[in-house]
């Protein structure tokens, strides 16, 4: 019996549920973290809903990029005892939050750029191959046509 293929919505639900559970735990134990996340997460979440691809790979890459930038605010939040004041202080500093958003966008942009570059390269290769085939065909048809 063939394995049932999971639909995109069925694959997103565990992510959502997992995210919701983490958020709940964070809100219960570290309320300041919730403040940080409430500012950091909207951009990736918007990306998640806009990404219509089955595996949401572009969004994952953007999230990972955002996470790489988020190391700094969360590290600072950790060092300031995870307090709500620390969280408020951090979110009031654009140099902490803005790079995260930029990183998310950069991750998405990187994904699109790589795709575009690959497409360009492929088109160039096809054009070269077509030229070669045309030349070969012209020679054959001249000889045997």
């Amino acid at each position: 019996m063939p394995a049932e293929r999971s639909s995109p919505s069925s694959r997103i639900y565990p992510l959502l549920w997992g995210g919701g559970m983490i958020l709940g735990i964070v809100a219960a134990t570290v309320p300041g973290g919730l403040i940080l996340l409430s500012l950091l997460l909207p951009v990736p979440l918007v990306g998640l809903f806009l990404d219509r691809s089955p595996n949401k790979r572009a969004t994952k890459a953007a999230l990972t990029a955002g996470l790489a930038a988020g190391v700094w605010p969360f590290w600072a939040f950790w060092e300031q005892d995870l307090s709500v004041d620390a969280a408020i202080t951090l979110v009031r500093q654009p140099t902490m939050i803005l790079p995260c958003w930029i990183a998310v966008l950069s991750g998405w942009l990187l994904s699109e750029t790589i795709h575009g570059a690959m497409r360009l390269q492929m088109r160039w290769r096809i054009a070269a191959e077509r030229r070669r085939l045309d030349q070969e065909l012209a020679a054959l048809e001249e000889q045997w046509g």
């Binding site: 691809s53 595996n55 790979r57 572009a58 994952k60 890459a61 953007a62 999230l63 990972t64 990029a65 996470l67 790489a68 190391v71 990183a103 991750g107 990187l110 994904s111 699109e112 790589i114 795709h115 570059a117 690959m118 497409r119 492929m122 088109r123």
Partner: peptide
């Protein structure tokens, strides 16, 4: 054509790899 979904997945995977590296 433009390489289809496989090419996009490959591009996304590549971007994901770069992002993981950055992380």
């Amino acid at each position: 054509g433009d390489g289809g979904p496989q090419m996009r997945e490959m591009a996304n995977d590549l971007a994901q790899g770069v992002a993981v590296l950055a992380l």
